[in-house]
Amino acid sequence: MELRMRAFPVDLPSGTRYWTVLDDEFLVVPVADQWLRFLRFGRSRAELTTRSYAGGAAFYFRWCQATGREWPEAARDMGLFMVWLRYTPSRLDDEPGTVVRGPGMRPVRGERRVNGVLAAVRGLLSYAVSVDAAPRSVLGQIYELADSRDLPEEAKGEDTGLYYRLRARHRLQEPQADVDRASDEELVAMFLACHSARDRLIVLLHARVGLRRGQVAGLRRSDCHLLPDSRHLGCDYKGAHVHVQRRSNTNRAWSKSKKEWIQPLDFLVVQGFDQYLDERYAILGAGGSDFLLVNLFREPLGAPMPPEAMGELFERLGQRARLSRKVPPHMARRAFGSNVADAGGSWDEQMLLGQSHPSSAVPYLIPNRDRLREAIQRVPSPRAMTGRGEQ
């Protein structure tokens, strides 16, 4: 019998969406719903975050249901849950007879997926403890007390003293993933493959401004100040720029960065704006929503583009440009950060990525390999450093 515990989207009258967990009878699981609403509205997390966490919580409740465990006390068997999660498919209808699945069989979920589910379960159980829906002993079953000596230096911040923290007890070792950026040649090819000024602007906003797709989709026309002087708009920032901020949007675009910041624009991006605004006016006139990027070539005309449309556009452009690999929007963002580094950008300049701390920008910086080799060759030899060069 298939277990139907599942994640489910909830659309509120305000237009905001979050995800919850439904049981077999399509009733909301109360503690999960409270936790997910707290994340979405109390902690201002993105809709996609609640979707991911709802899916992880649904797996946990499904396992508890399948094994006859009560979810508040089942954390003591988290190791067994990890095995179940690693090897048990979501649907068992096609299994021939009774099949015991476990180590020795092919895993159905990778290490990263399992760790994501475990993170969601830890969040759920921690919240349940805080509202007295689960015993306090649960925290000791999912966390262990650790100190800061095993943290990398960049994660310690300015406080160099020893401090204690909670460390997750259950986690799989993930294989090292290659992080790559889009090359300048790939981005130019995709730019040339665009069929409209709007699509060219979307590529520029990712590759030369460094915005995430949710931030691009969430831009309003009122966020874009393209003149050298914007004081007439109540803004003292000089030069062309955009204001990037988190807000609730009808197209469910969401800025991952909590803080608002100002991102400067270069002349190429300003030209992209000008061409797009002319194109938009020719099709919509002064109409359309206040969102910057809207439907111009499909119904409903003038409606804001959703974040998913950015990824779909990049996929189409990669196919048109006949690239040898997929180049999603995030790789264009990494290209922006890497180009800033390759151009000699300092730490504060690399904060153009909108990160709250310089160390947060490190995963986005993939310097040019030739520049790294040049940097090594600039290091003087020991003889030169000691002044004992060859005579």
Rank of each mutant, 00 (worst) to 15 (best):
157 G>K: 00
180 D>F: 05
179 V>N: 01
174 E>G: 08
185 E>N: 13
155 A>V: 02
178 D>M: 15
161 G>C: 02
162 L>N: 09
182 A>L: 05
172 L>P: 04
172 L>W: 10
175 P>H: 00
171 R>H: 13
183 S>C: 05
175 P>G: 01
185 E>H: 14
175 P>Y: 01
166 L>Y: 08
177 A>G: 09
162 L>M: 06
157 G>A: 03
183 S>E: 11
154 E>R: 07
183 S>I: 00
157 G>N: 03
178 D>N: 14
156 K>G: 11
171 R>Y: 13
164 Y>E: 10
155 A>P: 10
176 Q>P: 06
160 T>F: 00
173 Q>H: 14
166 L>W: 12
168 A>S: 10
155 A>F: 07
181 R>A: 12
174 E>C: 10
170 H>M: 13
174 E>Y: 11
160 T>M: 00
153 E>G: 08
154 E>C: 01
168 A>W: 12
172 L>S: 01
186 E>R: 11
157 G>M: 01
158 E>Q: 14
174 E>H: 07
186 E>V: 03
161 G>H: 03
181 R>G: 03
184 D>C: 12
159 D>Y: 01
180 D>M: 12
173 Q>P: 13
171 R>F: 13
166 L>T: 07
172 L>A: 07
185 E>T: 05
169 R>G: 05
156 K>H: 13
178 D>R: 15
160 T>A: 04
179 V>D: 00
169 R>M: 07
177 A>H: 06
159 D>H: 01
169 R>L: 11
158 E>F: 12
171 R>T: 12
159 D>Q: 04
174 E>L: 10
166 L>H: 10
159 D>R: 03
153 E>P: 09
167 R>T: 03
166 L>I: 06
171 R>L: 13
178 D>T: 15
157 G>E: 02
163 Y>N: 07
169 R>S: 05
172 L>T: 03
181 R>W: 00
186 E>G: 04
159 D>W: 00
178 D>Q: 15
162 L>A: 05
159 D>P: 10
153 E>S: 11
156 K>N: 10
182 A>R: 07
163 Y>R: 07
155 A>Q: 06
159 D>M: 00
186 E>H: 07
156 K>S: 11
162 L>R: 11
161 G>Y: 00
160 T>I: 01
167 R>E: 08
163 Y>H: 05
174 E>Q: 08
